Amino acid sequence: MRRSFPSDTQWWTDPALGVIGASGVDVTAESLRPSPQFAHVVDRFWVTRWAVRPGALNATVVSLRFPEPNVVLHGNRLIFHGILRNRHTTPVAGSGAFYGAALRPGAAVGLIGGDAAEHTDSVRLLAQTDWGLRAHRLDTDLRAAVRDGLPAFKAAFERNLRGHRVCADSRDRDRIGAMIDRIRNDGTINRVTHLTDEFHLSIRTVQRLFLHQLGVNPKWLLRRSRIHHAAARLERNAPDKWSELAAEFGYFDDSHFARDFADTLGVTPYTFARAAAPLPKCPPSAEHGPKRAA
């Protein structure tokens, strides 16, 4: 999948690629699915490329990825980060690219070690994790591969996965993976009881799986996911009634929806919709919050 983004400050949502806005810079993003034998480890491989427009000052890229751990070739560093709960505004200059591998739920626990909650909001060199000395070989292979683009990056990463023991408890890995897929693909899954009922698990078991295998509690992830789904809806068209959109995603009223939306994306739903879709007939009742991500 490949996507290009406007060069002036605009707002979009693409949880798989993570770019939600940019100023003074042209951005393209691309992703590839893993080979079938590695689909339980990697959700997708991705690259985000940027080129600052001539004369642009203070060029930035705003990102908010779907909550998941990543291994990223970031300049001259190969880093690992767990779930990053906040959006990030990155100053950029010239042109360049970030390459990464988004890991499946539970995979990071086996590859990196420790408990997933330890990695939440944490960024570290891959060589400082349980990947250890093997990270140096992966680093060397990936740097050589990116000269030939994302398919070569994917091939090099998958070669280095061979022989790794990814997860001691494949049953837990599969259960958390199935729940995350449901949340990602269905915006109406917005309560923990939806998961307990569908997967026949207790609330305590769901909470344990999320914290140990993913690093955040399920309630937080459900809140984040429905904002992603709502923003994707606003990209396509603005609602006639904001209260109906809020109710669709499980909010009591549009003021609570507007607050959550602005807290997450840095702009109100009305501002987002005005930039991404035909102008709404009227703003939601709580038109507040920052107008640009910070």
Rank of each mutant, 00 (worst) to 15 (best):
H136I: 10
K219E: 13
H74A: 15
Q10W: 12
F153C: 10
L103K: 02
G75T: 03
W12S: 08
R224G: 09
T89R: 05
A117N: 01
F261W: 06
P67E: 12
R233Q: 13
A29G: 03
R77A: 13
G24S: 03
W12A: 04
L214S: 08
R124K: 05
R191I: 08
N160A: 15
H88Q: 07
F249N: 07
A152E: 00
D254Q: 12
F249R: 05
G106L: 04
N76H: 09
L17S: 10
T205K: 12
A145K: 04
T205L: 14
S31G: 10
V61C: 04
D43Y: 11
H194F: 13
S35P: 00
H194Q: 15
Y99N: 15
G114E: 04
S225N: 05
F45E: 08
R162H: 10
R65V: 09
S225I: 01
F80Y: 06
R87M: 06
P278R: 14
A286K: 03
H40Q: 13
W12T: 05
S225H: 07
L78C: 08
L126F: 08
P15S: 12
P269L: 12
G132R: 04
T48R: 05
A273I: 03
C282S: 14
G55R: 00
N86Q: 04
P34I: 02
T264S: 12
S31K: 01
L142M: 15
D139W: 10
G149K: 05
G215A: 08
G177M: 05
G149P: 03
I83C: 09
N86I: 00
R173E: 12
M1N: 02
G149I: 02
Q213G: 02
V216A: 15
V109K: 09
N86H: 03
A155W: 00
A97M: 05
T271I: 11
P280C: 11
G55Y: 05
N160R: 08
R33P: 03
A286G: 03
G100Q: 06
T13K: 09
A101H: 04
P280I: 02
A107C: 10
F157L: 09
R65I: 01
R175Y: 06
T129S: 14
G266V: 00
I112Y: 06
R236A: 14
A144N: 13
R65T: 05
L195K: 09
H119T: 01
D263R: 06
A275H: 06
D260A: 15
T13I: 08
A273V: 05
M1G: 12
H256S: 11
H40I: 03
T268M: 09
N58I: 03
R226S: 12
A117R: 01
F38V: 02
T264I: 11
V166Q: 06
L195V: 01
